[in-house]
Computed example of a mutant assay.
Amino acid sequence: MKNKKLRIGIIGCGGIANGKHMPSLAKLNTIEMVAFCDIIEEKAKAAAEKYGSENAKYYTDYKELLNDKSIDVVHVCTPNKSHSFITVDALEAGKHVMCEKPMAKTAADARLMVEAAKRTGKKLTIGYQNRFRADSQYLHTVCEKGDLGEIYYAKAHAIRRRAVPTWGVFLNEEEQGGGPLIDIGTHALDLTLWMMGNYKPKSVMGTAYHKLSGRKNAANAWGPWDPEKFTVEDSAFGFITMENGATIVLESSWALNSLDVREAQTTLCGTEGGADMIGGLRINGENLGRLYDTKVELNSGGVAFYDGKQESDADLEARLWIDSILNDTEVVVKPEQALVVTEILEAIYESSKTGKAVYFE
């Protein structure tokens, strides 16, 4: 497929499609966006007019889009509840699929997606774009080299002080499956597991809170939320043990009385060194009987008239995804890895409801 221009269909033309997927795909000369679908026809039409190829089509029924046999790739950018069945249908229709995070609302739904990808032989990946940031890429290389040794303790950070998304269906538990844990905690957990190279959880304890969600006229980055519509947690925390004895602490919030605000970040502690993302990427360790810490310079500047601008995480994600199809290589975010993230998140919610630990077989 190296000399072919891939034909792409977009299912769900809302915020994440307009803010990430379509702008990044539009920068590639190896693809063309030929079809757009949204339950709100005006959104699909607007996307087709802005990003579509000549004679691009738009739909309100995703199955009509999938019936177009000329489409090679589908991007699923819908609410969490519909990720699984749309993805499975797309794979069965012979399309490669990029599905937005989280993989699915439930672990059972995510497993159906993995099974469909294996059954059809089509590529499936999940939109964890934070893996493609410069600091994440550098740190992953450090971890792969073994510079940190055995990573046995880690923290996954997804803390907002007051930044509750008040648009769309973010506050709707039926549509989304949860709040900050499944929305932004999923990014932090994915980063952490990826750095550790560890996808074998043993047990999970978790708590989810509805402490601030009932407040009226609350201070918030996007204006006050409606307490009547806030049906998901405002914060959630997990304590995860892995089969090899490693421990991960996951923290997530949209609204929390904390000044320690960090999102899509990880802290790693290994036998040979550690790393965190506080104020930039920092590596620490011991050398010649002395402790050291160093901040990694990730900008490419320093040359006159060159601003050091690098490819964005979303742009790199899109390019490598398309390259994996054209060259038939492995995707960066493997569906089996995203499944483990979903299993752990689900276990945190379950543990919070029952007050008991959840054990993995």
Rank of each mutant, 00 (worst) to 15 (best):
E92Q: 11
A93K: 03
A93Y: 02
K95E: 02
H96A: 05
V97D: 00
V97T: 00
V97I: 05
E100C: 04
P102C: 12
P102Q: 13
M103Y: 05
K105E: 11
K105H: 12
T106H: 14
A107D: 11
A107H: 10
A108W: 03
A108T: 13
A108P: 03
R111G: 01
L112M: 14
L112P: 06
L112S: 15
E115L: 12
E115R: 14
A116V: 07
A117Y: 06
A117M: 04
A117L: 08
K118H: 14
K118P: 05
K118A: 13
K118T: 10
R119P: 04
R119I: 01
G121P: 03
K123I: 10
L124H: 07
T125H: 10
G127R: 03
G127H: 05
G127T: 07
Y128D: 00
Q129D: 09
Q129A: 13
N130M: 14
R131T: 04
R131Y: 09
R131C: 06
F132L: 10
R133C: 11
R133V: 09
A134M: 15
S136N: 06
S136Q: 07
Q137P: 01
Q137K: 15
Q137G: 10
Q137D: 14
L139E: 01
T141G: 15
T141S: 14
T141Q: 15
V142L: 09
C143R: 02
C143L: 07
E144Y: 09
E144M: 15
E144N: 15
K145E: 14
L148Q: 01
L148M: 04
E150D: 15
I151H: 01
Y152S: 07
Y153F: 11
Y153N: 09
Y153C: 06
A154V: 03
K155A: 08
K155P: 00
I159G: 02
I159Q: 07
R160T: 08
R161K: 15
R161T: 13
R161I: 08
R161P: 00
R161F: 12
R162W: 10
A163W: 05
V164K: 06
P165Q: 08
P165H: 03
T166W: 06
W167Y: 10
W167A: 12
G168M: 06
V169T: 14
V169W: 10
V169N: 12
V169F: 11
F170P: 02
N172C: 10
E173K: 14
E173Q: 12
E174P: 00
E175D: 08
Q176H: 09
G177D: 06
G177S: 11
G177W: 02
G177C: 11
G178Y: 08
P180H: 04
P180Q: 05
I182K: 11
I184M: 12
G185D: 01
T186E: 04
T186L: 04
T186F: 05
L189F: 03
L189G: 05
D190P: 03
D190K: 05
L191E: 03
L191M: 08
T192K: 02
T192Q: 04
L193M: 15
